[in-house]
């Protein structure tokens, strides 16, 4: 291992950074979540537990904020000072946003979290030393640390529950960071299958676990590079661009601080914390409310 090798590898690794200088060639996995369709039912979250070997941590650890749900449903109330939330609640599924310029990636001392060529923010469990700097620098706080060796906790997978564990997904040990992977194990299988047949993965060929479970099909997931994919069409229709920090919707709206947009466009698509320039790969579509009733 020479230093020149290091420097070469270095620039190669760090320059796959996809915003700007090296656009995605074949794949850029991305998501769109329609908050008007999302009912907050938690099916996605449970599906994620099943697919990704997430441990149930139990009441005590949950109380200490040590729960391990890669996909969490947030419930917000309108803040308009009314006694009753008579326009319902707002639900927001939140998981790793797979930012293109991910704040977590630059700070990891060992390079355990990296950008893959197909636009995922990957987490290498074997490499992680558990400094938790990535989580400290994550604006969305969607990284979950293994505070305990959950496989050894009596509550997580007592026999025979361990038989349910997905062999395609690592069971994480204590001391490593983890987070939503966009079900990378499914993507890998789909990519291999496609490559064996000499083609690219087609839209709809691979689904994330949350997307597959969602009873209202609020989540769409696919390849943003493929203009025929639903997700690419959605991003395009909403005029949300990956490598831009101010979307069409935000024109004329300089404030980053309002719940209800002042925007005059008829667009619903937005990314959270656009102003932080993390360039998330998840577009949310605003919830709609009827005022006639």
């Amino acid at each position: 291992m020479s230093v020149s090798n290091l420097l070469q590898n270095w620039s190669a690794v760090r320059h796959t950074h996809p915003v700007g200088d090296a656009p995605h060639a074949e794949y850029k996995w991305a998501m769109a979540i329609d908050l008007d369709a999302c009912t907050g039912c938690n099916a996605c979250s449970v599906a994620c537990y099943a697919e990704n070997n997430l441990p149930a941590v139990g009441k005590d650890k949950f109380e200490h904020g040590q729960q391990m749900h890669w996909m969490r449903i947030e419930r917000y109330w309108d803040e308009d000072g009314r006694d009753m939330p008579d326009q319902g609640a707002q639900f927001l599924p939140m998981m790793c946003q797979h930012c293109e310029a991910a704040p977590c990636e630059t700070v990891c001392p060992v390079g355990a979290t990296n950008h893959t060529a197909d636009g995922l923010n990957s987490q290498v469990y074997n490499r992680c030393v558990g400094s938790r700097y990535c989580s400290a620098n994550c604006p969305f706080k969607v990284r979950y640390f293994n505070w305990y060796s959950y496989p050894d906790q009596e509550i997580s997978w007592p026999s025979p529950m361990e038989q349910q564990l997905n062999p395609d997904v690592t069971v994480r040990t204590k001391g490593v960071m983890e987070k939503c992977t966009f079900c990378v194990q499914r993507l890998t299988v789909a990519k291999h299958n496609a490559r064996n047949e000499g083609r690219l993965v087609q839209d709809g060929e691979v689904q994330t676990a949350c997307q597959q479970a969602c009873p209202t099909s609020a989540i769409s997931f696919g390849n943003l590079v493929d203009p025929a994919s639903k997700v690419a069409k959605q991003w395009k229709a909403q005029q949300v661009e990956l490598a831009v920090d101010k979307q069409a919707k935000d024109e004329g709206d300089d404030s980053h601080e309002v719940g209800e947009h002042h925007s005059t466009t008829k667009l619903r698509g937005y990314r959270i914390f656009e102003e932080l320039r993390a360039y998330p790969s998840v577009m949310y579509l605003e919830r709609v409310r009827e005022s006639a009733v």
Partner: peptide
Amino acid sequence: FYYSLPYPNERGLWPNFQSPL
């Protein structure tokens, strides 16, 4: 912890020189 030290290794893995840590 030694993963965070820049030592030559057969896997060609180096720490992340971008990280303030």
